[in-house]
């Protein structure tokens, strides 16, 4: 256990140091990501205003809150991309990680977790600027804040798991971009990324309950913005935990089979 804690703290520290060297590049990256939620926010605020002040229970103020929190959750959602898996399997880069006395996935999880620390710090001024322009209506309780903090890190783990599962498909075939695109489209619809799920048709909301996307994206936002009953807050954390627990088992089982397919030399 100590071995893992040492590894995680060192790896995260390394990643913080590395990413802190490129604040401008990281900023451009983040600003590029801002366009998407700002577009959604503007469109839905216009709809809410035209509807007489609210749509699906959201006012322009709470929509602004939703999409500003969205930007933080989106940062937390960044994990090693399946395209990266394709690259490291095709190029044989995985060989190096396999030599180490620890599962290669730990390296990914720790590296991106460290990067997030930098991203959260850089995110704060952006959030203040967005709040200045769009006037969010946000009054979380202490409990909601605490649940949110746990939920965004759980969301990060869930997305790492789903993207790793997707990435591992490249052990068998490297023509996978079509599959990835389909996955990202489904994620857009069922996660609450395009619009808050309460604006979606009933069947989408029901289906979303049984998919991982919502627990990795919409749920953390709703804990802060959606005035959820306490029961639902803990139910959501429970669902996140279930996805992480079974997801981890699934990843490790598939990994055992998949790694036998790997045949690169050098790298």
């Amino acid at each position: 256990m100590k071995r893992y804690i040492d590894f995680y703290t060192s790896m995260m520290r390394l990643s913080v140091l590395e990413q802190w060297q490129y604040p401008i590049a990281n900023y451009f990256y983040m600003i590029g990501m801002l366009a998407e939620p700002v577009i959604y926010m503007v469109v839905w605020s216009a709809v809410a205003t035209q509807q007489g002040g609210s749509v699906g229970g959201y006012t322009p103020g709470s929509l602004a809150a939703y999409y500003i929190v969205w930007t933080l959750v989106r940062q937390m959602n960044i994990a090693f991309t399946p395209y990266g898996w394709e690259w490291r399997i095709r190029q044989g880069r995985l060989s190096m990680s396999l030599m180490r006395p620890m599962h290669p996935l730990h390296e990914d999880v720790a590296f991106f977790a460290g990067w997030k620390v930098v991203m959260i710090i850089l995110w704060i001024p952006l959030a203040l600027a967005l709040s200045f322009f769009f006037k969010p209506d946000l009054h979380p309780t202490l409990l909601e804040g605490a649940v949110f903090f746990i939920a965004i890190w759980m969301a990060y783990l869930i997305r790492t798991i789903t993207l790793s599962l997707l990435g591992m498909v490249t052990f068998w075939t490297t023509r996978v971009s079509a599959l990835f695109e389909l996955y990202f489209a489904a994620e857009l619809i069922f996660s609450g990324r395009l619009v808050p799920l309460s604006l979606m048709p009933e069947w989408v909301q029901q289906a979303a309950w049984f998919m991982p996307f919502r627990w990795a994206f919409g749920f953390p936002i709703e804990t802060l913005v959606g005035n959820m009953p306490v029961n639902d807050l803990f139910l959501g954390l429970g669902m996140q935990f279930v996805w992480i627990f079974f997801g981890t088992i699934l990843v490790s089982q598939i990994w055992k089979i998949a790694i036998r397919q790997f045949s690169a030399v050098g790298g």
């Binding site: 451009f28 990256y29 590029g32 366009a35 700002v38 577009i39 503007v42």
Partner: peptide
């Protein structure tokens, strides 16, 4: 390259 990324994000605004 990051600026190129930024453009893609902003171009999406043209959908409306």
């Amino acid at each position: 390259h990051e600026i190129a990324n930024l453009f893609e994000g902003l171009y999406a605004a043209g959908r409306w």
